[in-house]
Simulated scan of single mutants.
Amino acid sequence: MRINESTCIIGTNVVLVPYKDFHVPRYHEWMKSTELQELTASEPLSLEEEYEMQKSWFQDENKCTFIMLDKSKWSSSTDEIESMCGDVNLFFNDPDEPSIAEIEIMVAESSSRGKGFGKEALLIMMHYGMDSLKVSRYVAKIGEKNKVSLGLFKKLGFQETSVSKVFQEVTLELEVKGQFQDWLREQMSHLQIVQYTPNR
């Protein structure tokens, strides 16, 4: 999606930047992990295929992707590659319901887990989707074995709507309205949204 190609969102502990081609080698290294492949239901790709994927995601108006940076590393070095720790995505899969988005989060770096980065990146993306992309409902599809992600989404108010035994996947949903909308705006009132300038 091109809408966020020049958007950098600075939070308390994480920074979100658009997924660019120079991020691909580090991303490709992450996705060699069988653990991450299982958690994200992904197939391993060659480096060339990963570049093609990045390009297609950038051009696809139904996908919005940000790379998550560790703010403490980014602030001290401004080296995006060294600061990369995961990604967060929105997928607009239903052309008849453009305000519904599937949301997905991955904290790829094991050293970045357990620090609240995933929760913060998720809330930033939900706020961005609500304010910039007019999302009114979020859907999350999470593997049954991924107890950490299931716990995180449920803690934020997502309700389980179905379980697929075939795909071993739980579907959760959250309406963005009323008190939750007000709460999310209040929680994210500190965000800085600035013009993105790539720094490798």
Score class of each variant (00 low, 15 high):
19 Y>L: 03
45 L>V: 14
5 E>M: 12
7 T>H: 07
36 L>G: 03
80 E>S: 04
29 E>R: 13
59 Q>W: 09
102 E>C: 09
131 D>I: 09
169 E>P: 01
153 F>D: 01
63 K>P: 02
24 V>S: 09
72 S>Y: 10
170 V>C: 05
113 R>D: 05
9 I>S: 03
200 R>M: 09
13 N>G: 06
20 K>C: 06
12 T>R: 11
142 I>Q: 00
21 D>H: 15
111 S>Y: 12
55 K>L: 14
136 S>Q: 13
2 R>M: 11
136 S>V: 09
184 L>P: 02
154 K>L: 02
68 M>S: 13
107 V>L: 07
113 R>Y: 01
21 D>L: 15
146 N>I: 00
65 T>N: 15
162 S>H: 08
58 F>M: 12
39 L>E: 01
184 L>R: 01
62 N>S: 15
171 T>P: 07
19 Y>H: 05
169 E>C: 08
64 C>N: 12
190 H>Q: 12
51 Y>H: 15
140 A>E: 00
103 I>H: 07
8 C>P: 02
21 D>T: 15
38 E>V: 07
195 Q>L: 09
114 G>Q: 04
125 M>N: 07
120 E>I: 00
22 F>M: 06
72 S>I: 12
48 E>G: 11
3 I>P: 11
91 F>N: 03
100 I>N: 01
193 I>N: 08
144 E>Q: 11
36 L>S: 05
157 G>D: 09
180 F>R: 01
78 T>I: 05
24 V>I: 12
35 E>Y: 09
163 V>E: 09
140 A>K: 03
11 G>I: 06
56 S>I: 11
9 I>G: 01
75 S>T: 15
49 E>K: 11
149 S>W: 00
96 D>N: 08
137 R>E: 12
189 S>F: 07
147 K>E: 13
